[in-house]
């Protein structure tokens, strides 16, 4: 694909982000005129404080969270697919999302039965604890995966390890649930549904700042990622330190998933599907193109999914995970069909 075509496609992706972002602000259960939204955004006082609250405290943080989370998941999925040389690798496949869930389950469910108080009633402190426990859980699993990655040779072996770790985590969660108070279980289940709206207030700022720091680090890995495409032997012959490269890429994608999962719960399929959609659009595996493309595509798709989940009539009834699965699962099927022809 020629350079100019690539640039045009990138611009198109960026435009869809802006479009979906505006639609996210515009559409919702309460109808607010466009002019009022613009006014609220640029800081004009609006007579209707409810409208101001809806736009500034609900729709804007939710849209920003969706865009950042989508970008993070897509980039993380791309890194995993490259480092494990497996088109079906993704945050959830490697058990990292399950790790986050386990962390949250431990804190939410155990605190109730051991500490004698339900964390779900603690408000802000509870929220922060949940976030931290998710980060700790996913980072622990990621460290485990990175350790296993150094020991086992085959990428497929590692992938199966990830899936198994996920099963173990879910089994432990099952046991924890059995001993927990009903309201704690409900709090956990709600977190587990995945949502871009759970993040609110100051947390949104923290989340966005974190993502703004983490996403650019992936760009430092472009040359490494391209070399990894060639396979270990060729990459090594071209001067790449394979172990260090794998560790760097796995860590980067692991931290991205950890942070996103902590704030939004496990959001499925975005990380897996977006890189494939971008490869299909740009006809290249070169990370100099596909990495920014995945970032933009992830943000755009997440905004679209959030929009669908919030369509008038669905309000709250449709978890964002259902929408992402609806979009992502067909992509996985398409990859599997395509695989028979030439991929992998």
């Amino acid at each position: 694909m020629s350079r100019s075509k690539t640039v045009i496609l990138m611009i198109v992706l960026a435009v869809t982000i802006i479009l979906f972002f505006i639609l996210n602000l515009l559409l919702g259960s309460v109808e607010i005129p466009m002019s009022d939204i613009l006014g609220i955004l640029i800081g004009q006082d609006n007579d209707n404080t409810i409208w101001t609250n809806i736009v500034l405290k609900s729709r804007l943080p939710q849209a920003a969270t969706a865009a950042m989370a989508g970008a993070g998941l897509a980039v993380s999925g791309l890194l995993m697919q490259t480092v494990f040389r497996n088109p079906l690798a993704g945050p959830s496949v490697l058990g990292i999302s399950s790790g986050a869930s386990l962390g949250v389950a431990c804190v939410v469910l155990v605190s109730g039965s051991v500490g004698g108080m339900a964390l779900s009633k603690l408000g802000v402190i509870g929220e922060v604890t949940i976030t931290l426990s998710a980060v700790v859980g996913s980072l622990l699993i990621m460290a485990l995966i990175a350790f296993v990655a150094q020991k086992v040779r085959g990428n497929v072996t590692l992938l199966i390890m990830g899936v198994m770790i996920g099963y173990i985590a879910n089994a432990i969660i099952g046991v924890l649930k059995f001993f927990s108070a009903e309201e704690d279980i409900r709090a956990y289940v709600i977190w587990g549904l995945g949502s871009f709206s759970r993040v609110s207030g100051g947390q949104t700022t923290v989340f966005i700042v974190l993502m703004c720091l983490l996403l650019p680090t992936a760009f430092f890995l472009i040359k490494t990622l391209n070399l990894l495409l060639l396979g270990d032997s060729y990459a090594r012959n071209l001067g790449l330190n394979i172990k260090r490269a794998r560790l760097l890429v796995i860590s980067c994608s692991g931290v991205l998933v950890a942070v996103v999962t902590a704030y939004c719960g496990p959001v499925v399929f975005l990380g897996l599907a977006v890189p494939h959609i971008c490869r299909g659009l740009f006809h290249t595996s070169n990370h100099a193109t596909i990495l920014p493309a995945s970032l933009l595509g992830g943000a755009s798709l997440a905004l679209l999914c959030n929009l669908i989940a919030r369509m008038p009539g669905f309000e709250g009834a449709l978890p964002v995970n259902s929408v992402t699965a609806l979009v992502g699962a067909p992509v996985v099927m398409w990859v599997l069909f395509d695989k028979r022809k030439n991929e992998v």
Partner: peptide
């Protein structure tokens, strides 16, 4: 030059030969 078949799709011949320059290119490749 190895016997293993490359598992890459969507990389042009030009780009692949260019990968041979990796030891000489800078941080961004």
């Amino acid at each position: 030059v190895l016997t293993e078949k490359l598992a890459i799709n969507n990389m042009s011949v030009d780009e692949l030969v260019g990968m041979g320059r990796s030891p000489y290119t800078g941080f961004w490749g």
